[in-house]
Amino acid sequence: MPALADAARIDPASSRDPELIASLRAVSKRYGPHTALDGFSMALRRGEVVALLGPNGAGKTTAVKLLLGLLRPASGSVRVLGRDPRSSAARAAIGAMLQVARVPDMLTVREQIELFRSYYPRPLPTPEVLRLAAVGAIEHQRFGTLSGGQRQRALFALAICGDPALVCLDEPTVGLDVHSRRQVWEQVSALAAAGKAVLLTTHYLEEADALAHRIVLINEGRLVRAGTPAQIKQGVAGRRIRCRTQLTPQALRALPSVTAAEADQERVVIFTHDPEAVLRRMLTEDAGLSDLEVTTASLDEAFLALTTA
């Protein structure tokens, strides 16, 4: 199972992995009664784009803020270049793009870039930042006058201007049109090609599929699945069984080959690669099973089932 494979790869022994840039290990984080992350683990390596994929409130932003040292974990460990992300040495190796409600209006794109460059020990030259983020045409515009797409590109420029080893992008394409979204995708790919580790959060499967080398599926603070886009798609696609049964979704999820199961009004919906085996078990355990229907599941449907279960 891909999830297990990934968990094995970020075993403490892998801290000697020279390609490892950042990791979360068995991290839990609570806000009062709400559990944002629950024993969550993931790793980021050089030259790799990892998409943290999940619905709103799944814990994606919390994971990013832990990596940025903005939050501290209740348990587990967070490391960036082998250090606590709160240390100034680790911070100097991180660039971030967060969901910002408003940017101070009065500074120009170039001024803001110059300011952020001054924070880093070895920043990229300003012309290169302007080129990489495609903000050359708007460098003398104030932030207050930028369109949504321009603003995201300018924030992207701030994330990369320090030439960091790790770039965290929290929902970089939210609210962007198709053209601007493609532009961000190209920039993200270029970052990875330049050897950066990129963490990107998104709730679009399409985006994760197009961009990421690996996808980490997260829901309700738990790792649901991790693997390459192909593995994830293979894992979530398959057949959909729909029927009335006494068996609970929880019990059904425990069956081998079941990727997701959830109640849907009076019935239960199950996603699996091996519908015959699952049905054989179900019919044995519940003689009253009725209204049976087996169909091919669409990718989106299966993904939704995985992350809303």
């Binding site: 040292g69 911070r91 967060l98 910002v100 408003r102 940017v103 952020f116 880093y120």
Partner: peptide, 11 residues
């Protein structure tokens, strides 16, 4: 506005 957080995440 979340701006302080972005600055705080920077070095």
């Amino acid at each position: 506005q979340g701006w302080l957080e972005l600055k705080w995440a920077s070095p």
